[in-house]
């Protein structure tokens, strides 16, 4: 589950799931829902990615920013995500897949580009499995 929160200058997102990984996956959808109507994106291709972070909340922001990077260089929108369990050694680490297709202005109902996920308003709650942050749009 995810929602878009009120924020005067930028856009904030909040997401939750049964596990923290699922909350991350939902936040990925929240991120792309700002850029495009998710319903209009078909899952034609998958992209593998890996992300690390010094802390769990920073891993979360780095995860969203990795999705923005992958979307940018592959010129794709993603509409769903599958993450493996987050590993914690010295740093936090996760592996995952993003599913989507090439950006097509004719087909996709466009929103606005997200420049990046920020640390502002950042909350990652491992007990409640909820995540939140502000996006720069």
């Amino acid at each position: 589950m995810f929602e878009i929160l009120e924020h005067k200058g930028e856009t904030a997102i909040r997401a939750s799931g049964k596990t923290i990984e699922q909350a991350f996956e939902e936040a990925g959808k929240a991120l792309f829902s700002v850029m495009v109507s998710l319903d209009s994106v078909e899952e034609k291709k998958e992209i593998n990615f890996e992300v690390s972070g010094t802390k769990l909340d920073e891993l979360f922001v780095n995860f969203l920013n990795e999705l923005i990077f992958q979307s940018g260089i592959n010129e794709m929108f993603f509409s769903s995500f599958k993450l493996e369990k987050i590993e914690k050694n010295e740093n936090f680490f996760l592996k995952g897949k993003a599913f989507g297709e090439k950006i097509n202005e004719e087909k996709h109902d466009l929103g606005v580009e997200v420049k990046a996920a920020s640390l502002s308003g950042l909350k990652v709650d491992e007990k409640e499995n909820t995540v939140q942050c502000v996006l720069d749009v």
Binding site: N62, A116, D136
Partner: peptide, 10 residues
């Protein structure tokens, strides 16, 4: 520019 920002956030 966005990526420079992202990289230096960490």
């Amino acid at each position: 520019g966005h990526q420079i920002g992202t990289d230096y956030l960490q």
